[in-house]
């Protein structure tokens, strides 16, 4: 049960992963190429978002707000909660997940010989920032494309069985005109859904490098996973 349950929230916080991706069956090839083309012009990205967690174990959804920063090619920062309760920072080959209230920092080495959940997590992250259409198509496929309430909706399915064990489906909402990111929604194995809606989007504006620093308060508990430096 534990394994099944913990898969529910896999990929939580990484709902952007489909936003910058590409790939697809032939009927949707043109949309995908347009999306990748639009994403390729995106060197910096900053947004606020509202995340709603519809968990099957709870009678009411949990709502929180957060912010996200991205800087090509391999830096991003994700904060959830106000003040932030969880922070994920990627810089180069290192991903750091901070829990300020618990005074805990978990670090992952990207590109290392990770196995299990760590490997899946990193795979999803890399999928969010594709280098090419082939990379993205190796990770996802588009199962449906529709337009609803002014949003271009792409229904995605992870190709990796391991990834599907965490998240059977992913929905990405794009602006029909600019193909900019509007929302993501992860569907978990137990039916729980985590929806992030983005607002106040700023693109290619300067971002302080301080946001991507990996410094950790030495008094915090630090957990290294595998070959983390």
């Amino acid at each position: 049960m534990i394994r099944g349950l913990r898969n529910i929230a896999a990929g939580l916080g990484f709902s952007l992963l489909g936003v910058f991706g590409e790939g697809v069956p032939d009927p949707h090839e043109s949309i995908l190429r347009s999306w990748i083309e639009a994403s390729s012009h995106l060197t910096r990205f900053e947004a606020e978002f509202r995340q709603t967690r519809h968990l099957k174990a709870l009678t009411q959804p949990l709502v929180s707000t957060g912010r996200v920063w991205f800087s090509a090619p391999d830096q991003f920062r994700w904060e959830l909660g106000d003040p932030p309760q969880s922070v994920a920072v990627r810089s180069g080959d290192t991903l750091l997940i901070l829990s300020p209230r618990l005074r805990r920092a978990e670090s992952y080495a990207l590109g290392g010989n990770l196995t299990g959940p760590g490997r899946d997590l990193m795979g999803l992250l890399e999928g969010a920032f594709p280098r090419s259409i082939e990379d993205w198509k190796g990770r996802f496929e588009i199962t449906a494309v529709s337009t609803n309430q002014g949003v271009l909706r792409l229904d995605l399915r992870p190709r990796s069985p391991a990834a599907r064990k965490l998240m059977p489906a992913l929905i990405v909402g794009l602006d029909p005109g600019s193909l900019g990111l509007r929302l993501t929604e992860m569907v978990m194995v137990d039916g729980s859904r985590i929806r992030s809606e983005f607002g106040t989007l700023r693109t290619n504006a300067p971002i302080s490098p301080e946001l991507f620093r990996l410094d950790v308060d030495p008094t915090w508990k630090r957990i290294r996973n595998d070959s983390t430096p």
Partner: peptide
């Protein structure tokens, strides 16, 4: 539950 990024923790806290 509302803010953790750890999938395992979400599952555990929910159930």
């Amino acid at each position: 539950l509302a803010t953790t990024l750890d999938p395992a923790e979400i599952a555990r806290l929910a159930y």
